[in-house]
């Protein structure tokens, strides 16, 4: 199919975009285990415990990589799904404007595409849970999908609210507009949308109060129930992909709240600043989440819809406010 000359793929910008994207993936992949270490350590210290230090998740990953995966009869997707999950998490991180707003021209960071990729990861882990053929796996994926289904309206309406001021659903355009006009960050529209988005991130990444990441109690577990049968390097990939997802989404929220430090073009200095900025922002956001989590208990599964309804109302108000206030 012939493309019109105006939109012919420009090789140079594609190459730059690819470079930016790959660099971003590498940085986030390196940072995400440390982020989890920091979050756990913050929690332990606040609870008066010593904790194993921030490097423990990294050590866990290396240990899991060297362990053999066990395969039970009738299980089919245990080798494939962890890789698919990690792939979608990397693609998600690649699409988000975490370090720079430079993108590959043919793969813009459209928010609906971002959501689609996020949901691919959600589906992959739910299928992994069902594939195990145990009561726990099915239970986890049933709960996981119920939450994912109910989160969806909030996600898309929040996306809508964010896209109204710039007239585009491209994330880089949204972040660029925020850098150009930082006051817009504290507008009521932006604040409401951000709060809604934070609840979404909490639900999508299985943090308190929606899911307790450190529980193995059958009445409450969601994420852990799905990955009970994964072992060895399979489990390693599953853990890594969910950490990466958390790091990416925290980075997104942080960049929407504090857009400074994001490189708007490809330059060595700008990228160096961007790397430092995103690492600091993600760590601060993670520490903040961990600190808040200390004071929260997991809510009952059937109270979760109420929480999500509240976040939906906020996202909806954000859209309406953007027509009335601005």
């Amino acid at each position: 199919m012939s493309a019109s000359p105006a939109v012919a793929p420009d090789l140079t910008s594609t190459a730059w975009g690819l470079l930016a994207v790959v660099l971003q993936c590498c940085v986030l992949a390196a940072v995400s285990p440390i982020l989890i270490g920091v979050m756990r350590q913050v929690r332990y210290r606040m609870e008066g415990r010593i904790g194993p230090g921030i490097w423990q998740p990294t050590r866990d990953l290396l240990k899991l990589a060297r362990k053999e995966p066990l395969v039970a009869p009738g299980v089919r997707l245990q080798g494939v799904m962890p890789i698919a999950m990690t792939g979608t998490s990397l693609l998600l991180v690649a699409l988000l404007p975490l370090m720079s707003t430079v993108t590959i021209p043919l793969v813009p960071d459209d928010l609906f595409v971002v959501v689609g990729v996020l949901l691919l990861g959600t589906v992959a882990i739910a299928l992994l849970g069902l594939d195990s053929g145990t009561a726990f796996g099915g239970m986890g994926s049933s709960r996981h999908m119920t939450i994912a289904a109910l989160v969806e309206p909030t996600v898309l309406v929040a996306v809508y609210a964010l896209s109204i001021p710039v007239g585009s659903s491209a994330l880089s355009a949204i972040v660029d507009a925020r850098i150009a006009e930082p006051v817009s960050v504290v507008s009521p529209v932006s604040l409401l949308a951000l709060v809604a988005l934070i609840i979404v991130v909490v639900a999508e990444t299985g943090r308190l109060p929606v899911d307790n990441p450190s529980t193995h109690l059958e009445l409450t577990m969601v994420h852990e129930a799905m990955i009970l049968e994964a072992s060895g390097r399979d489990l390693g990939w599953v853990e890594f992909s969910s950490w990466l997802r958390l790091a990416g989404l925290l980075g997104l929220v942080a960049n929407l709240a504090l857009p400074w430090g994001v490189a708007q073009s490809m330059s060595i200095g700008g990228l160096a600043v961007a790397i430092v900025a995103i690492v600091v922002k993600v760590m601060l956001a993670g520490a903040g989440v961990a600190a808040v989590e200390v004071f929260l208990a997991k809510v009952r599964l059937f109270k979760v819809p109420e929480l999500l309804a509240a976040s939906f109302v906020m996202a909806f108000l954000a859209v309406t406010a953007s027509y009335l206030v601005v």
Binding site: E68, P69, L70, V71, A72, P73, V75, G79, L130, S132, G133, T134, A135, F136, G137, G138, M139, S141, S142, E218, L228, E229, G232
Partner: peptide, 22 residues
């Protein structure tokens, strides 16, 4: 390499029939 095992782990409770699945 992967190692085949006879049973799922399932927190120790899958010896019973497939009807226990979701």
């Amino acid at each position: 390499p992967r190692r085949a095992v006879d049973l799922q782990w399932g927190c120790g409770g899958v010896r019973v029939s497939p009807r226990m699945q979701y």
